[in-house]
Design a protein around this nucleic acid. Structure first.
Length: 575
DNA sequence: GCCGTTTTCGGCCCGACTGTTTTCAGTCG
């Protein structure tokens, strides 16, 4: 009986839970080792089980933060599906540490204390105990702590948690705009994971400098968007916004703005790497500045901070605490694709299938986003739910595009398709129809629960088709809603190189590809495109999120085909 | 438990804020 294969995510969770247990017991240094290893695994583009099959423990040893001991533990998990060390821990403390510590302000120490005194094993147990006033009675806790825990549980149960960046960035920009209007404001910026453009955002962090801190804080607290002040110190404010998210506002002195911005942009792991480096160079880095002994080293800008640490500037999007500091030390950080560099969009749906806008309306919106070409990619007949086009209607659409192009000046509409990849890897349209198009793009929408081997074969068979140019949203995931289907992405990426098919970085809520796959594709020499997947004229703003995603995957403008003008783009796409 | 521009042994990031405390532990980022 084959056992269900253990996933990277499961291994990451086990390591994180072990780290929490070790922290609860005040074990020194080990917890960080487990956390760093978990981060290392999180940055992988392949499933460990596939890596292990391919090259054994050699590939596992290469993971940053994984040494001899943890490598053996990973191997044990991969081969037996279990980890003895972890099972022993769980026997001693039979509760879900990871789950309970998701409650705000409840860390490993508190979880242990609650378990020891009250034998609580779940978040629901904790809530019951709090409501019965049992937590306030524990020595070292009190009524306020108990209320805080209850608030934390409410937050957890509500529509809190992490949100997709698409829902958060516009809201945060609105806040920034309002605070900018105060004349005494010098700087006001988005920091934290939002500035790093992570796929999902847990809180909105803002940092500011001002000649009148009290005024800024007063105005901020009175904003319509601010629901409740949770914490307030001399220069740090923590609030709950009306959209349910939390956030910090930090008000600091302008002389250290660079160091402050670095600190509050994170990530936590990136900061640790920077501070360790500062220490090795007999300096000290914190949000208050960079110091050599007692002497303050100028850090007005982030560039200055990195320079003083002997590093090339590292863009926020790749500050994840992986290898970026090492690469910056060698001055090998590439120039990431600029936010305004796209010339075209290769995935646009119209009212011919499941979009809301006519072709002309979509063209108008695309132009407003600074584009000079756009491919119309309505779904094909296999996707009946989206009113997919059959051969006849697609040819009819082509004639309309011809008419439109004659009218347009300085903009080109390309005839294209989002052709469904059928279950067996064949395409949903005939070759003779595909030949009438400027670009053939394909994607998977059905039968998504097939086995990994079958799905990989299915997609590779489609990639082999001589007319195919682009594979849309290659893994099928939708952020925070739908997992990727089972797929060996390394094989797909290699097939794209072999058959000269470009991979899409989709800027919609899919944000598909994952950044690790983007980076891997670039290393393998596979072409990429960034698309909005617009189904409405307003959706071209997705391009910004697609670019952010590409930047997180270390993409330069040269790696992204649709940074080229139309002619160069078509030439590069051609087989 | 990891790792090396001080190294294969001896280090391992920094500070703010809260709550329950008379000096600090816990959590967060």
């Amino acid at each position: 009986m084959p056992r269900k294969k253990i996933t990277n995510k499961q291994i990451i969770d086990i390591f994180r839970e072990i780290a929490l247990h070790l922290r609860a017991e005040d074990v020194a240094f080990k917890p960080r080792a487990y956390e760093v290893a978990a981060e290392g695994i999180a940055g992988l583009s392949d499933e460990l089980t596939d890596l292990y099959k391919e090259c054994g423990t050699k590939c596992i040893d290469d993971i940053p933060g994984v040494g001899k001991d943890l490598s053996a533990k990973i191997e044990e998990l991969l081969t037996t599906g279990k980890l003895d060390y972890y099972d022993q821990l769980k026997k001693k403390y039979p509760f879900d540490m990871l789950d309970i510590s998701r409650i705000q302000d409840v860390g490993p120490k508190t979880v242990f204390k609650l378990y020891r005194v009250l034998k609580v094993k779940t978040v629901a147990d904790v809530e019951r105990a709090a409501k019965q006033n049992k937590i306030a009675a524990i020595p070292g806790m009190g009524k306020k702590s108990q209320d805080k825990i209850l608030r934390g549980i409410e937050y957890l149960k509500g529509d809190a948690g992490r949100r997709i960046i698409h829902d958060v960035l516009p809201f945060a920009r609105g806040l920034v705009d309002k605070l900018k209007e105060i004349p005494s404001t010098i700087h006001i910026d988005i920091a934290g994971s939002l500035r790093r453009r992570k796929e999902t955002i847990g809180d909105i962090d803002l940092i500011a400098t001002t000649s009148k801190p009290k005024e800024l804080v007063r105005v901020f607290k009175a904003l319509r968007e601010v629901d409740q002040v949770l914490e307030e110190g001399p220069n740090k404010l923590m609030v709950r916004y009306v959209n349910g998210l939390q956030g910090d506002l930090l008000v600091l002195h302008p002389d250290e703005y660079g160091a402050t911005l670095v600190h509050f942009t994170g990530s936590r792991e990136h900061n640790i790497l920077l501070r360790e480096r500062a220490k090795r160079k007999h300096m000290k880095l914190s949000e208050h500045g960079l110091f050599k002994g007692k002497a303050r080293i100028t850090s007005r800008t982030e560039e200055q901070v990195y320079k003083h640490l002997g590093l090339q500037f590292i863009p926020p999007e790749i500050r994840v605490g992986a290898d970026e500091v090492e690469v910056a030390d060698k001055k090998k950080i590439p120039t990431l694709i600029p936010y305004d560099s796209l010339k075209g969009d290769l995935q646009v749906q119209t009212d011919w299938s499941d979009g809301t806008g006519s072709i002309e309306e979509m063209v108008h919106a695309a132009r407003e986003h600074g584009l000079s070409y756009m491919a119309v990619t309505d779904h094909t007949k296999g996707l009946t739910i989206a009113h997919g086009l059959d051969e006849k209607r697609l040819r009819q659409q082509g004639r309309e595009i011809d008419r439109l192009n004659k009218k347009l000046r300085g903009f080109t509409v390309l005839k294209s398709t989002e052709c469904d990849v059928l279950k067996d890897g064949r395409l949903d349209l005939s070759d003779s129809t595909l030949k009438t198009l400027d670009i053939v793009s394909i994607s998977v929408h059905s039968n998504t629960s097939m086995s990994k081997v079958d799905m990989t074969e299915r997609i590779i068979r489609a990639l082999k088709h001589p007319l195919v140019n682009i594979l849309f949203h290659p893994t099928g995931r939708v952020v925070a809603r739908r997992d990727a289907y089972e797929l060996n992405m390394s094989r797909v990426i290699r097939a794209c190189r072999e058959y000269h098919v470009a991979l899409e970085v989709n800027g919609s809520a899919r944000l598909d590809l994952h950044e690790a796959h983007i980076r891997q594709s670039i290393e393998e020499g596979v072409n990429l495109v960034i698309n909005s997947d617009a189904h409405d004229p307003s959706h071209f703003q997705n391009l910004e999120y697609g670019i952010a995603q590409a930047r997180r995957g270390w993409a330069t403008a040269a790696d992204i085909l649709n940074t080229k003008p139309l002619k160069g783009f078509l030439a590069a796409l051609k087989k």
